[in-house]
Design a binder for these strands. Structure first.
Length: 195
DNA sequence: GGTAGGATAAGCT
DNA sequence: GCTTATCCTACCA
């Protein structure tokens, strides 16, 4: 993290969600939660494309306090709690009042590995950030970050200089509806993906 | 190598 | 009451 990596601007997120999910791959997720810097490269994402997407939290429901951040401006962090114990981080996309976002599913750990291990327990490096709830635990991301800006908040996404990686597209994971939609994006061959 | 089951709580019906 | 965009452990091969 030596050179000046600029944050991805709000305009980056104000595009079709699947496109944002694909283009997020390879960039840096940086957390300064509790004054500890942890950094990982995004290697796996999923798109949740709007109210017509049966797997999206906004599907067939009204806007609720829990999902409010999902309707925020592009570049907002939508962090939700699930299964009674896990946090998951999303980047809100498209436009204000339109509920769509990209779930960050896995990172290649780059910086602050000792901090990550302290938070995660002494797991193998491969398992540190391979999964949406695992990466949140490793980076200290909780509901406190819900609704904050990924452009200028405590948790940010910074642009890498290198060119776009080769991307594989598959179905999404862990959902029960809209299962077959090809909206999961992975850096081809990355050993850091969740599976 | 693989998978089944349990933990645990908010939000919805 | 039931479901859930998950993870870990135990157990089996």
């Amino acid at each position: 993290m030596r050179p000046p990596f600029p944050p991805l601007a709000a305009a980056f997120y104000a595009r079709p969600t699947a496109e944002v999910a694909r283009r997020l791959l390879g960039h840096f997720l940086v957390s300064d939660v509790a004054g500890r810097r942890t950094v990982g490269r995004i290697v796996e994402t999923e798109a949740y494309v709007g109210p017509h997407d049966p797997a999206c939290h906004a599907f067939g429901r009204r806007r609720t306090p829990r999902t409010e951040a999902l309707y925020g401006p592009p570049g907002t962090a939508y962090v939700y709690f699930t299964y009674g114990m896990h946090w998951c981080l999303n980047a809100v996309t498209e436009r204000l009042d339109y509920p769509a976002a990209v779930l960050i599913r896995a990172l290649e750990p780059l910086e602050g590995l000792a901090v990550m291990r302290r938070r995660r327990g002494n797991v193998a490096e491969r398992g540190l950030c391979a999964g949406p709830a695992r990466l949140c635990e490793a980076l200290g991301i909780t509901g406190d970050e819900n609704g904050t800006s990924l452009v200028r908040g405590t948790v940010r996404i910074l642009r890498d200089r290198t060119r776009g990686p080769l991307v594989a597209v598959t179905s999404r994971i862990g959902i029960t509806r809209g299962v077959s939609w090809p909206l999961r994006f992975v850096i081809q061959g990355s050993p850091w993906a969740s599976r």
